[in-house]
Design a protein around this nucleic acid. Sequence first.
DNA 1: GTCTATACCGAGATAGAC
DNA 2: GTCTATCTCGGTATAGAC
Lengths: 208, 208
Amino acid sequence: MNQNSKIKLSFKQKMMLQREAQIIQTVNGLLATKGYDAMTVDEIADSVGIAKASLYRHFPSKEALAVAALINTMENSLEQIQALNETSLSALNKLKNITQWVMRLKLNQQMPNLPSENSMLREHLLTHDSYMDLLVNMSDSIGEWIEQAQAERQITTSVTPLCILYTLYAKACDPVLGFLKISGLYDEEQIIEMVTSTCFNGIGHREH
Amino acid sequence: MNQNSKIKLSFKQKMMLQREAQIIQTVNGLLATKGYDAMTVDEIADSVGIAKASLYRHFPSKEALAVAALINTMENSLEQIQALNETSLSALNKLKNITQWVMRLKLNQQMPNLPSENSMLREHLLTHDSYMDLLVNMSDSIGEWIEQAQAERQITTSVTPLCILYTLYAKACDPVLGFLKISGLYDEEQIIEMVTSTCFNGIGHREH
DNA sequence: GTCTATACCGAGATAGAC
DNA sequence: GTCTATCTCGGTATAGAC
């Protein structure tokens, strides 16, 4: 992603990177709206505006395209996390903040949908080093927030940190967001508000 | 589903229904583990133990197979709901009960995974009368529980009933269940317990 | 690096015998 | 109603010219 900060690139190389960024954005959108299986390479090529064969000069396979998009999203997420770590927000508010950031991505159909369990792509991701590195980094950072928030009694200790981590990750593919949007009854901020509430406050009754 | 309660059937017809039940069970399992796109008709046939062409004598298409499995699951769910309505449980406990029932199905890979948004199958379901009838029935019943529980101040009124309904529906495809299971750290009851807690109590801190 | 044209294959669906 | 064998089509990937 950041080669251009290391060495001077020729004009052609810059164009190349820009095109690949464009491809990744397209793939990201298609993964978000249709998912991996339903997305076709023809579609990607048409949407980008180049021939399919040209696409294969940039990425060796459909899987590689998806992985590149997923890694891109992970990198963006990590940037968000690092930015939050620069702030003086409480651990709880960092957790809420990143969760809402992810939900906005999902609502705007920019959060890629991973295929269901037992898929080839998932298997492949687990063996993909740089992807796993990013994932581990992310889990570590968020895990720290969770433990800190628990220590400060800002979030519950009645479930384990791992369960909380997964619960937050799950917001990246929460169908509730889409359903509420389709209903047409709420605007984006109301949806974010409600789902944040069900996530942190639960649907059970609370005093005050 | 209940033709056999209406009229006397020949032996052959009974065998037929049994076979179709067997097919539906197989499809249900495959939908739960692999999802619609990844599931192949060859797989279904092999798993049932008949030839693919025979399968097509029972159901006209792959889509019809999936719809039959989905309707079957809906019928089972409605039975559960009706059984709960026979009890004297509070509305809150009925909601918890049906939610946990659904989560057990999901944990045991018997809850079919619908494909991602914008799929053909989803479109088709929306125009499928008997499926929509079941869905509306279910939503009405659960909707009543929600409103009753809100009136009794057992669940929150800070989000709308619709949001709560969707939040509960979402438990049928909650990836947290599978992730916690894969982690190998918890048994089924612990997982149900934790996810129920995050759902009804939230992950935010609660007094007492 | 981009294109057009094509190879190849997996998977849904069907033909036709028994 | 079940089978084997086959058709067909869509979709991934590649060949080869420019």
